[in-house]
């Protein structure tokens, strides 16, 4: 009885250690490491404006070259240049990046229903029930998810003020 228990315990222990060692020595990172690095740079709001189901698939596509580095509107020019540097693409060859947008709530129409608040993937909308909601512009990625949920149609998307991450040289005027 004692022997049987001992043998079974030892066997389980030995196999467990063997498997743990195997898992350690044969560890494989999930997916393409470059894609994971790109995914870390993307905004992570899973807004889907690039045409992919989320930032993960978009990062995979950028890593394999199926998608352009300029495909992310919330990331804007700054992200495109960062990714271009990472992938050794000449930043001057990128062309136009899609314009970054920020949501703005029309204060006169907002009823404080908190629906946009719940829909926002980046928690950029601040406001309690029956209180006026406000968009925290620095966190907003312009993903349009709040626009679709607002029952009052009081959210609009505007081009935000130029700041350091968004500013870039204008194209030279045609002579």
């Amino acid at each position: 009885m004692l022997m049987a228990t001992l043998v079974l315990t030892l066997m389980g222990l030995a196999l467990g250690i063997l498997l743990a060692a195997a898992a350690h020595f044969f560890a494989v990172g999930e997916g393409n490491p470059l894609a994971r690095e790109i995914e870390d740079k993307l905004p992570g709001s899973q807004c889907g404006q690039c045409g992919f189901p989320g930032c993960g698939p978009a990062a995979d596509a950028i890593a394999t070259g199926d998608a352009s580095v300029t495909c992310c509107p919330p990331g804007g020019r700054a992200l495109a240049e960062e990714l271009a540097k990472m992938l050794n693409i000449d930043p001057s060859s990128l062309g136009e990046t899609p314009e970054a947008l920020t949501a703005v709530i029309n204060e006169e129409l907002c009823t404080g229903c908190t629906r946009c608040n719940k829909a926002c993937p980046t928690d950029a909308i601040v406001g309690a029930t029956k209180q006026l909601h406000v968009v925290y512009a620095e966190a907003c990625t312009g993903c349009k998810q709040c626009v679709d949920t607002c029952p009052e149609d009081c959210i609009s998307l505007v081009t935000p003020q130029i700041d350091l991450t968004r500013w870039h040289w204008h194209k030279p005027e045609a002579a």
């Binding site: 022997m3 043998v7 498997l19 195997a22 560890a27």
Partner: peptide
């Protein structure tokens, strides 16, 4: 302790399968 045959064989098989999968993946 032959009465442990089925139990220990199942243990071995499960470990072999897991080990095969882990090493094959790498």
């Amino acid at each position: 302790i032959e009465f442990l045959r089925i139990l220990s064989f199942i243990l071995i098989i499960a470990a072999v399968v897991q080990f095969t999968e882990i090493s094959m993946r790498k």
